[in-house]
Design a protein around this nucleic acid. Structure first.
Lengths: 344, 344
DNA sequence: TTGTACGCGTTATCAA
DNA sequence: TTGATAACGCGTACAA
């Protein structure tokens, strides 16, 4: 047996009918005798016929494929988002083409280009850290390609964005630390060109303000790379001076928090007694480290699901903004664990 | 501007030449005047022409797309594999269609069917835990569709498999525990229908034999689900009897190990002094838990890269088994951390 | 109830 | 050096 797939023509030839008859019979079109319908379906079964999705795409100018552009696959949060996307796409008969940008703008642009070539019906994007110019996306929107941005969303008009409530997440985290009695709260902030970084920081500031704690600019430290090593090194510097050191940390995400915890512990300081720590994203390891890390849970797969549902709606109803909204904001939830519990 | 993409025909019309001329000019075919070539390329640029990959697929019966079927995306090891796959695919101009099966056979079958419909050029598979019958894959192989299995590989003739040396990983892990002075080593084994589970167990047995330690069947416990909760519960049972309890654990993977550590710690036992623990896969959290977990590192992205390279070779050279081999086995590496260091 | 003809975008083949 | 035509697999308007 060869790779050659049976086509409608093959069925037609075997049965001495025209290919249009076969096409109609397979699709249960009205005006086809039950007799023919039955013969066609049996032959299709026998020849192991399978419709050629490529030919269909060409014919219908619709590929039933959506593109996903994501910074990194090896990233707990993004992997949960991908999972959510895949679930909804699968249930609706759509395929998912995946590209990771490795946080490179150049690759983002070329990936989008490839996907466009492949006639994707819509695009889900979380852009790279390098991306500050969005013209490659704007071009697509002008072409009326449905796009939904998630997690990292651009400051452009008329985009459809699915995010988590980063502001509130930052607020909850910081307020919790304040409630526990911490006062000199260090914020290890994320890359400054990401909206999520800004929002989390604003939440942090809001909680401080509300509590009447003056903001100390020295307690806001950006982590542009946002990995373990970077935050480890920053924290060793910041905490080694015993006189004026922070008594708590609100980190941009759990990896940053983990690096900070290693640094703090390496200086012999106790968590949570001397330093409280809260992370973000609730990575899988958060409950397993020592002490277990309090973290702001983001509903990753729900983000993926929502973003995909909206995208499919845009595709099928040819509506650019189905909910007439700028942003769909999903709630975060603070998961309190030992790392931030001074009072207990 | 509308979604309508410029086609070769559009360029031809603008320039009053035939579409074949345009096609040839764009591809730098010989026998086209430089003049025409230049005009065509300029017009293509101006109209923002982009080749339609779908039409190309139909014409050439080649889609430059490979399918990836994987049990779960939210899984550290698999996410690294996907990343490796995507890297090699991208570099070679191939697209990646992703499907997760959620460990369901039914979904595996339907995903493969969809991909076939989409005329994928080849398939990368790690099958589900439910899969014991491989006829849906055998059918594809008979159709001469290039397939490479990775990590979880079937016991079928003529398959191309990329795996890690699970046997040696299990052996290394167990030998290390023995060298550290542990003697009653519990093996929390994986699902018994997976080859990887068998191999790891065989490595464990080999190390015991070599050291002259008799095998105690009660010290081999299968974890069919292989999550934290399951191993936690198993271990609470196994360790609460002080008289005859294990003094070490070799776990099928790190999540299982983490559950076991929680159980052991909850019983007041000290790691590594009273119980040594070794995991498998070196999940991201392994270095962050308390104590840091010794683990057998699997080169996930290398597996993805290798599998993809071999698949592309099969696709392009129309060779079914390019290296004339049954299995490509990649080396594991034991990363020793505190959880298994009795002597230090 | 069924068949014929055309087009989706591209390229290979043959002819000019 | 260029053009006309057919074909990849399918669906559909129109004709029969």
């Amino acid at each position: 047996m060869k790779l050659a797939q049976a086509t409608i023509k093959d069925i037609a030839r075997e049965l001495n009918v025209s290919s249009s008859t076969v096409s109609r019979a397979l699709k249960d079109y009205p005006g086809i005798s039950d007799e023919t319908k039955k013969r066609v379906k049996e032959m299709a079964e026998k020849l192991n016929y399978r419709p050629n999705a490529v030919a269909l795409s060409l014919r219908k100018s619709k590929s039933f494929t959506i593109g996903v552009v994501i910074p990194e696959v090896v990233h707990f949060f993004f992997s949960t988002v991908i999972s959510g996307i895949e679930e909804v796409a699968y249930k609706n008969g759509y395929n998912v083409i995946l590209c990771q940008t490795n946080e490179k703008l150049e690759r983002e642009i070329s990936s989008v280009e490839t996907m466009l070539s492949n006639q994707i019906d819509g695009l889900l994007v979380s852009y790279s850290k390098e991306t500050t110019d969005f013209s490659h996306f704007i071009k697509l929107m002008e072409m009326e390609l449905p796009i939904v941005f998630f997690d990292r969303t651009p400051n452009i008009e008329n985009t459809v964005n699915v995010t988590v409530n980063d502001f509130n997440g930052g607020y909850q985290a910081t307020k919790h630390l304040i409630d526990q009695g911490y006062r000199k709260i260090l914020h290890l902030a994320g890359p400054s060109n990401l909206t999520i970084s800004k929002k989390r920081k604003e939440g942090y500031l809001a909680a401080l303000n509300e509590a009447g704690i003056p903001v100390d600019e020295k307690l806001i430290v950006e982590c542009p790379i946002a990995n373990e090593k970077e935050s480890f090194e920053s924290c060793v510097q910041l905490f080694k001076d015993a006189d004026n050191r922070p008594d708590a940390i609100f980190a941009h995400h759990d990896i940053v928090a983990a690096g900070a915890m290693l640094a703090v512990k390496s200086l012999g300081l106790k968590i949570p007694e001397e330093v409280g720590v809260v992370g973000f994203s609730n990575w899988q390891f958060a409950s397993m480290i020592d002490p277990p890390l309090t973290s702001v849970m983001q509903p990753g797969s729900k983000i993926g699901e929502k973003a995909t549902q909206i995208l499919l709606e845009m595709i099928n109803n040819k509506v650019i903004n189905p909910l007439n909204m700028e942003d769909l904001v999903l709630d975060t939830e603070l998961l309190i664990r030992k790392s931030s519990l001074k009072n207990s």
